[in-house]
Design a protein around this nucleic acid. Sequence first.
DNA 1: TAGGCCATCTGGTCCT
DNA 2: AGGACCAGATGGCCTA
Length: 402
Amino acid sequence: MFQILFKNPNLSLTKVQLFLFLVRKTRNQQSNCSAVVLLHRLPATMLSRLFSEVLPDVQRLAADWVDDNDSEDCKTKDGHDRCALGEDELDEPQEGSSRAESEMAGDDDEDDEAEEEEECGDENSGDKPKKRGPKKRKMTAARVERSKVRRLKANARERTRMHDLNSALDNLRKVVPCYSKTQKLSKIETLRLAKNYILALGEILRNGKRPDVVTYVQMLCKGLSQPTTNLVAGCLQLNTRNFLTEQCTDGARFHMPSSPFSVHPYPYRCSRISSPHYQPGTGALNLRGHSYGPGYDGVFPAGGTSPDYSSPDYEGQHSPPVCLNGGLSGRQQEPPETDRNYHYSMHYSGLSTSRPSHSLPFGPSGARSGVAHSENIPPFHDGHLHHDRAPPYEDLNAFFHN
DNA sequence: TAGGCCATCTGGTCCT
DNA sequence: AGGACCAGATGGCCTA
């Protein structure tokens, strides 16, 4: 009966494959079970009926296959003939084919024969479609136990890995311009701020000059959330008091005696404060939404200049007051006074040399002391031990000393 | 209560 | 085979 498919000797259909095909054609969903077993178990009347119903199709399809393929293209790795079995059948997800599933199934080779018999023992027990592919091995108690142990070990490793990652992030938090033990930046904000910080420093080195503080803050805060922007601005001590007490009266430059920046007179344009980026009611300066114009992508072009705040865009009234660190929300709330002071002094200790400053490349802190930079703890240092500034910071500092 | 953030578990993939 | 890495799912915590 199978000989009709073997007109071409290259079409090496086996009885099992033919049977699977027949089963498929007759919508018999037992094709996933052991075909050999089923073939032998099927009553003669059933086989006869199957073949008689599908034989014309089999003949026609077999002829097509002989014409279209010489069987090689249809062979799969495991020797199955995709054409004979049907593409969609082979494309079905094969249960137990993944490593994890094989793990769950255990890795012993025992009892395979018994399992095959066991699997097929319920051939008449329901309509559930049988799946092809490697059979799931029986989960003995020992296998279950081994699988659990493996999973627990993997979980522990994953925990350790994530802890290491978090430690690295903590170290990164310490070297970005806004660090607080109590007001931790979120992971994503830490990464964004670090990126901006690197870009800002690189830009400063390229340009060979200090940016104005607002530009610097804008560079740092690009892409940050509003709370983080506020926090960073707060860290830079751009708060209401500074601006209110130092409001210029002539629209020109002013200094901020109460701020470390005042030690080294640094030009600020009052008009910047009342720029369109100030968001009334939010108590925040919209540093994030600022556009430097076409082509600006967060980094000023090499040799370029800072935004022209004297342009009409930045002209206007010199108020309203800005409270850059008053709009903290969520997790980034204003830190406790002690921490905040510590924070500020760390970053801008131009007036207080008790603690080394952060490596802000402008203003007194960066230009003044050359004191060891305590907060720039390299990632490989843990804790808050102060240490000498890393060479890059020294260079940057030296630059601003000049 | 919704939304953000986080830790953990889990399964998949890749590499050694 | 086992470990590293990754991403999705889930639940807890906190804040507005």
